[in-house]
Design a protein around this nucleic acid. Structure first.
Lengths: 205, 205
DNA sequence: ACTTTTCGACTGACCGGTCGGTCAAAATAT
DNA sequence: ATATTTTGACCGACCGGTCAGTCGAAAAGT
């Protein structure tokens, strides 16, 4: 089979470019990074980039999707299988996401570039929609866990599940934002304590 | 007195430019906005802009400081005077900030541009420092309120005040982020409910 | 041989920042 | 009161540099 092999190669090079672009965009921002920079970093010619992506915007969006995919995996890994108390699973999810991002704090600058793209890029609506879906997905996962906890009699049933889910998901953004600006801010520790407060508020007593 | 009147005029025009720049930057982002755009929007010549600001970067930073000032006022107004229960004052602060931003949701795109500037602008350290200070200020205000509540016997004393403050302050960012992407997300309502959870977690019982 | 992929020189649009000229009003002289 | 000079805010044409995207030629693959 040649075609798949061909496709495979294509796909590999595409990923190579995306990873290079990810680094360079993270370093210099969307506007600050030039296609020439990215191509040089990837060790290819400038023109080659355009064999795989139609435009700079297009490449940037591909980088975006790639990272959405990655973090979505970090969120769900180790959680879905596990069948213990809901509070344990929420804590596990919390820890998994914290660790994922603390490890790659350097790419958090990209997240801010993506947010900005949702506000003023040419394809802002495209980014907005993708973020909207992603946040919904994350809130959905948390909601299910909370709902499960309620049904097990672990959590109070008079809480607004959607609101708390938004709060918990939001706390992740919040921790990274504050950690980004302040090196002395302990992201993982503060995140854990915030989760504890949420769990205390949810607890049946 | 001639000099102050002169200064006054200067100051007025500076503000005029800042406000125009604020609109245009919010609309098109830092890179997308041209000085020509901004000058046209302000109804002045391009060259005039440079009588008041050294560079585009400089102007953008002025816009940033202007908004930091504004939101800082929105945070503290109605709170410092009031002497009721700490939980009431926290709720008041929550509501004041929510209302301030919900009213001017359109400028939230600027916030994201500022965040991005802290990551990849030429003067990223400048922005980072300013954000660090601002977040510390906000966390400080919340901390004092919580501390006060603990001393009044309103709140439990075995909580990590700094962590909860970070959580509460972070929730504001979080609500606006999620509201930004999703029109059907009720920022004010969800914010209120999250604050309620935090207060429940803090409550002496 | 010929097809596919890679490449980087080139182009044209764009834009930040400069600068010499203009003009109205303030200061000064008569 | 009127004429003359000085000032500096204001302007936009212009310059120099940058960079996304193109394209034809060279290299690699088959």
């Amino acid at each position: 089979m040649q075609l798949p092999e061909n496709k495979q190669l294509k796909e590999n090079k595409k990923n190579l470019i995306i990873e290079a672009a990810s680094k360079v965009f993270a370093e210099k921002g969307f506007s600050g990074a030039s296609i020439a920079d990215i191509a040089a970093y990837a060790g290819i010619g400038k023109g080659t980039t355009y064999e795989y992506f139609d435009s700079k915007e297009d490449l940037f969006f591909a980088v975006f999707e790639w990272h959405v995919e990655q973090s979505s995996q970090a969120a769900t890994v180790n959680i879905t299988a596990l069948g213990g108390p809901a509070s344990d699973r929420l804590s596990a999810m919390n820890e998994s996401l914290m660790n994922y991002f603390v490890d790659k704090m350097d790419i958090f600058s990209l997240v801010m570039e993506f947010w900005a793209a949702s506000a003023s890029s040419k394809s802002r609506e495209h980014y907005k929609q993708a973020f909207k879906d992603t946040y919904r997905e994350f809130r959905g996962i948390v909601s299910s866990l909370i709902q499960d906890g309620i049904e097990r009699g672990e959590f109070r049933s008079d809480v607004d599940v959607a609101a708390i889910s938004a709060g918990i998901v939001g706390t992740w953004d919040a921790m990274f934002l504050q950690g980004w600006f302040d090196e002395s801010f302990d992201i993982a520790d503060t995140g854990k304590k915030c989760m504890a407060i949420f769990l205390k508020g949810l607890s049946i007593k």
